[in-house]
Write a protein that binds this DNA or RNA. Structure first.
Lengths: 209, 209
DNA sequence: TCTGGCATTGTACTTTTGGACAGGTAAAGG
DNA sequence: CCTTTACCTGTCCAAAAGTACAATGCCAGA
């Protein structure tokens, strides 16, 4: 378990060292040694001094390493937080966070949690609730589906092929098709792509146009 | 620090005790003693056997106590997760979660983090992204796509057929296919359904299994 | 008991999709 | 000028998806 800080200067800040005496620093992701890459523990990305257009690529690159990534920023911004977390980061905090906070955050993200400033979290949840609130009604026609049909639909929603669905439900590929035909009819979609999107509450080509 | 489980039966499940040997159980929030109320540690609310209309009030009541609340459900549902977390809960998991998972979750929420199943978290973030309209978050290897390929991919993401895409982009259906082949290769998906899902930041069959 | 809905599967057929192989053009850069 | 890259198209083929028509078995409710 090791904490690694990616920061332009390549030097650990005082508070970082306070929080994690064993922490290491690197100026670039490319500089990381094999050993670090295979290790566990959180990865901290300092974007405070980074030009804006460079931040997202860095976050993505950091997340690609497979370790939980916390993005540290100079000025917290909601939109940016969205973007980074959506890109795979699991933490978003201020560069000047106190050592105690840093430790808390590390604990959280290293155990599979998500951390961001409480105020931001509040905003996040409010937003998603609103987003789904309006679309909850769209899930309604799912009631028309029989239990078996629903199982098929759920698999399609995850991108499974007919063969895979047949395998999973222990039925013939033919039967899967039969269910699908019924589903298309009931949900008023024309193919599996639109079904998959509908199951995920995503507007499709024909429902919007 | 104590963990308290609110469950209709008032009896701790096997795995809960395994996870937290010192845990306590209560049938109702009103039954909680003063001592418990002033203590710290997480509060676990079992809603599996609870009628639907009773759940939300319970969650709200539990959150009012000021301790981090984890809601445990029998059947995870996105809309419900939203609602509960928005009501103040900071954890959402299955009642049958393993002791190890429970411990992880406790660690996270007791350190100010948010915990929910990874797949759900994905959906959450994707949703907020769409809700806020921050398009800049088209992440991942989408960078590798050429402009034309991106146009095709975006149409697929909306559920369009090859013929429709050809029409929209004023090219041959054959060309659409050519672009699609390139896209599949670059994004590591096998068909248009998985592409559509990936474009919408939704985990697919093979990426989760 | 009869009926209707559900689940299942079959054969046969059409459409759509995706891949293999093989080109052609146009723009950008060394 | 030559190479690379993106873009576009063609033919051929195979697999997957989807439809039409038909049939069987189960089970719950009238």
């Amino acid at each position: 378990m090791s904490r690694v800080f990616i920061t332009p200067t390549g030097i650990l800040r005082e508070r970082w060292r306070e929080a994690f005496p064993a922490a290491r620093a690197a100026a670039k992701i490319a500089r990381l040694t094999e050993k670090v890459l295979t290790d566990t523990g959180s990865l901290w990305l300092d974007t405070a001094q980074l030009p804006e257009q460079l931040r997202m690529p860095r976050v993505i690159a950091a997340c690609a390493l497979g370790r939980p990534v916390v993005v540290m920023v100079g000025v917290p911004a909601e939109g940016e937080a969205h973007a980074f977390l959506n890109a795979g980061a699991v933490g978003y905090c201020h560069v000047e966070a106190t050592p105690e906070q840093l430790q808390e955050i590390a604990t959280v993200v290293e155990h599979g949690g998500l951390w961001m400033p409480p105020a931001l979290l509040q905003r996040f949840l409010a937003l998603t609730t609103r987003a789904t609130g309006s679309q909850m009604t769209q899930v309604q026609p799912l009631n028309e589906l029989t239990s078996r049909e629903l199982m098929v639909a759920e698999q399609v929603a995850k991108g499974a092929s007919n063969r895979e669905i047949a395998e999973i439900l222990s039925i013939t590929e033919r039967t899967v098709k039969a269910h699908l035909s019924a589903i298309f009819e009931k949900l008023q979609v024309r193919d599996r792509v639109q079904l998959a999107l509908k199951m995920n509450n995503i507007p499709t080509y024909h429902t919007v146009n």
